[in-house]
Amino acid sequence: MRGKPVIDTERCKGCMLCNAVCPENIMGVGESFNKQGLAYAICVNEEACTTCRSCAIICPEAAIKIIKYV
């Protein structure tokens, strides 16, 4: 596993732009809701994450950080 997105689930507004841009198509909408009542994004398959940062770059809330294992 190379790394993964770390999502601030309270900041996420569920816009799903990360889902639209993820080359590996591993960003999706989760089942649970944050305090704003929005279904926040989750990474459905962290194994497949290439840490390409697309989700973090497009996120309007700066709610996604990307970590890379060293």
Binding site: T51, R53, A56, I57, K65, I67, K68, Y69, V70
Partner: peptide
């Protein structure tokens, strides 16, 4: 995994 990682996007 090993605990050490670094942020490549923050």
């Amino acid at each position: 995994k090993t605990a050490d990682f670094k942020y490549v996007y923050d």
